[in-house]
Design a protein around this nucleic acid. Structure first.
Lengths: 216, 216
DNA sequence: TAGATTGTTAATCGATTAACAATC
DNA sequence: TAGATTGTTAATCGATTAACAATC
């Protein structure tokens, strides 16, 4: 590990994917260098914050020049572990699971979706976007044999709660949880939640706020 | 509006849906009252923060007693605008749009999904989970006629960027954006992003961190 | 009344912004 | 060299935690 890990705050980590995405766009447009000032304008973050963020990992720029887009893009990929070849499975092959299996951006970011799992015998044996659907009873063997790091959880809350601890035992390192369950895994398992209806509720608040403002 | 709106910080707003969900569970279990201390244990937030959060909106508890679960649950719904009957449409009836149309929790929270829109003639005229799919050319009329507040965007980035300003013109109040586009609407349109692959990248970072820790 | 627990003020902690010397 | 822009320190701002008087 090149950079001193001074316990980077979560807020900083959450900004990295956004920087990464934006730098990817710059690359596509053939932009070779960029300053924190320019990045700041485009992304509505202060230039100061951008430099501060990067400096948690050691500083990737050059005085008087700015940042080399490709280099920076690459470094952020490294920091996020996108080059680590983490393999993922999707658990729950319902509508959401299917949508996730078809979601190109996961693989674009370096994560291989290797299979889906479900209890529904009608789905088992089929393929979704070229990925096989297996029965959930075979999940332990599959995870261990194929060295799966990530489980993407697109099943109901109750089943997620039951499953979480087992997945930790089988060697899963991280859970991307789409259910409304609050997962507590004691072990060293990372959890990231995508609570879609929470986002909708937050949006609702903002709309209401705006309406109230207008009705003053 | 009952409570003084002292410009509640975004972090507080983002916690409200979580409180709301948890209080809903308490209700289901027949729990009538709860203290900030108990809530704190269950949700891994400090009791102090919980009280502080609620007090942005005026305080819903009673000294020596705690909070009435039903009342608090209800008040949070009010704050978030869940009782406002906001109507939503889904734009983009691909795999993700379909999954969203089948996602029960949106309607459970009080948002009616009234229709989907797509350009694909093969989809137009069909129904998804009982909701009609219309051609996108009819979207302006539909929004205005049915007083739609929320557009859920499940289409590619490029199309989202094109569409956003138009939706604002048509009277949409809020966008729930599932694409990787960074939306900039000048007008008073609220935006909430669900960047699924950002979450996966954040998860990746956490996994990597854990692995590095183990390899010390 | 005594015990519990809130609402709220004050203290602490952490993150963001500002400023500027270092240097390409 | 002069101009630009970083890396980094210091100042500010805001959010979290602690403490406790108010009160049910």
């Amino acid at each position: 590990m090149e950079y001193k890990d001074k316990n980077v705050p979560e807020v900083v980590i959450k900004r990295l994917p956004r920087y990464y995405r934006y730098l990817g766009e710059c690359l596509d447009q053939g932009i070779m260098r960029i300053s924190s000032g320019k990045l700041s304008e485009k992304m509505s973050v202060t230039a100061s914050q951008i430099r501060q963020d990067f400096n948690y990992f050691g500083g990737f720029g050059q005085q008087g020049y700015g940042y080399n887009v490709e280099y920076l893009h690459n470094e952020i990929a490294q920091i996020l572990g996108l080059k680590n070849g983490y393999k993922a499975i999707i658990i729950g092959a319902g509508h959401l699971g299917m949508a996730l299996a078809n979601h190109a951006s996961f693989e674009k970011r370096g994560f291989a979706i290797t299979a889906l799992f479900d209890i529904d015998e009608k789905k088992v044996g089929t393929k979704i976007n070229g990925k096989p659907v297996f029965h959930i009873k075979d999940i332990e063997r599959f995870i261990k044999k194929n060295n799966i790091s990530i489980a993407i959880l697109s099943l109901p809350k109750s089943e997620v709660i039951e499953l979480a601890d087992k997945l930790a035992e089988y060697g899963i390192k991280g859970l991307l949880n789409f259910s409304s369950a609050e997962i507590k895994t004691a072990k060293h398992v990372a959890v990231e939640n995508v609570h879609m209806s929470d986002s909708l509720m937050t949006l609702s608040y903002k709309i209401k706020l705006e309406e109230d403002k207008e009705n003053l």
